[in-house]
Design a binder for these strands. Structure first.
Lengths: 189, 189, 189, 189
DNA sequence: CATGAATGAGTATTCATTCAT
DNA sequence: GATGAATGAATACTCATTCAT
């Protein structure tokens, strides 16, 4: 693992734990075991490091979800796998995933951040959902519903569930399993 | 309007627009038209001011929702009114409502903030949903579903929809209307 | 003497001794005996403090020179008094005067500084020389020479002599006295 | 052109444009098209590079002026050629000459720099003027004036004119031509 | 109650310099 | 000779908080 990679990983963990404002470049450097100057050498600025850290997580997730939903036959199946895969991913990346929450367009962390760029990446996740909905309407596994709004609402539900789990003090056992059922009940034929 | 009230309103607007970290006490003082010392005189610290600003919004909302759902007969009706009322409230308080987003337990703004206190208040909103679900299961307007998890998921969906609307660069016309349908489809008998 | 004034005086002394880049805001604060934050409270930024420090010196000098040249009859007399007064002023303000050198448009200290604003103030000194030259040409005490260029050259000579004295390691006794003679010999009828 | 020479030339251009403090070793390396380490390999430190860059300019200038004044008969002629040659040199080396301004003993750029060494070189320029004055007094082309002080004042005038031209926002057409006349009028018999 | 002067710890960022390859 | 990764001290600037008036 190069020092550059160590810095990115450290950033993902610290941003995940402390948020954008709560993270200092010194914390990242220390966690990565490098001099603070090296962080700037590779990533120029705090904002840029944040974006790089978030982008890497989301790229990994998108690749993961493409793979997991590749073999599904019906649109409803694919949607179910998508939801399952998304939630699984958050659990498999407990320490770094919250960085993706924080740099997502749904975040309230830093209103000044440039969300256009990262917003485009997130849009690809919602496009996947739309695609599954369309396929499901054609193959009869999904009811006739407005596709775009529903895609956003499905993603909104997932986001809400993930936030409940990761950020909230509430302990709700079985929340993730129920999330899939909650959504599918609403859209499947 | 007393100076104390002016400060609270200013805080709600600035926190809403700039986030916790992005807000300075000087900004609040200027917006309220008072000296910065007075902000501390009344609210002791930034964190405390933030909590006071958020609490006031949520108290107002809870009172509003109690009233709006008071006359509903079935559990499903009450739930529908709750969702509608919640979303309406966000639109009627565009400039101050984001402060509630930011100080909610679902926020990723500042992980160090003490959300226990305000978390309890938010719990009352979820309890309302649980209450409607139970009532609906009894009166037959709601399907047999796990009440607690579903209450959290309904709230998660609402939170997700509100975030899409308030924080996201995406423009999704009809999202709010569809939110109610999306949820009711999933839980009503 | 208010703390604000103490900061300005400290700035004039430190900028004079250490130059723009060699001066730190901490040095100024310490010399003034105040907390570093107060320097920013009153003067916003290093560049702004530098301009304020320089402006105060030049304003004082201009007022001083107006007074000293007020009673002169011929243009040649006034010019001689101007040169004498200018050079005297540098000696009477040994510790602060170099700040004016450094923030003058003739300075090579900081190429990024906004010289337009301060350039306008220095122009008033050159305008005074032009005025004396014109008066002298009329009253016959000054030869027929191109006024603008000569005014700039007279000021250039003064600047060069002052730099020799204040910045250079060379020790040239009698340089200041000879400066007046050198210039007057060139322009007086 | 060796890489060592490329670095020196790059340094002369960047120091000329950005000043000592405003220049970074990275800027020099980039302009020269070499790795930053190589700059240190050849020139050890920033201060040393600055001195080397300045020395090279002044050596070139001195050689140039010796040649240009070689054939002059009277002291006054030689002085006139010196002034003309000096000013011409600044125009023929517009992009690199300001480095000489900045590392001259007349500079206000960085008071901490060791200007003793380079001060000695500049002294040779003033010695040339003295030599011409002495010759002129002997051959009757120059008036009886104190030689040392006048030599310094002539150089001061030239420095002042050059600064006006290179650093100042003022546009004074014909300034350089008038400079020679201004000086010669003062000293020639 | 109200002001705003004053404090000082904290932060992102820069940059000369070193050194292993 | 030549590279550029790596270091860490230094600096301008911010801001919550205190307190005399």
């Amino acid at each position: 693992m190069t020092k550059k990679d160590k810095i990115l990983l450290a950033a993902q963990e610290i941003f995940a734990r402390c948020g954008y404002a709560g993270t200092t470049m010194k914390m990242v450097a220390e966690q990565a075991g490098v001099a603070s100057g090296l962080v700037f050498h590779y990533y120029d600025s705090k904002e840029n490091l944040f974006m790089a850290a978030g982008s890497e997580v989301i790229d990994t997730m998108i690749a993961d979800l493409r793979e997991k939903t590749a073999g599904c036959v019906t649109g409803c199946d694919a949607l179910g796998e998508f939801i399952k895969g998304y939630l699984e991913f958050t659990l498999e990346n407990k320490t770094t995933f919250p960085t993706m929450i924080r740099c997502s367009p749904f975040s309230d962390d830093n209103p000044d951040l440039d969300r256009e760029r990262i917003g485009a990446k997130f849009r690809r996740l919602i496009d996947m959902i739309e695609e599954f909905l369309n396929r499901g309407i054609e193959d009869g596994s999904i009811a006739e519903i407005p596709v775009t709004q529903t895609a956003f609402l499905i993603y909104a539900s997932i986001v809400g569930a993930v936030r409940t789990r990761f950020l909230t003090p509430y302990d709700v056992p079985g929340l993730y399993d129920e999330t899939r059922r909650f959504i599918l009940r609403s859209v499947c034929a």
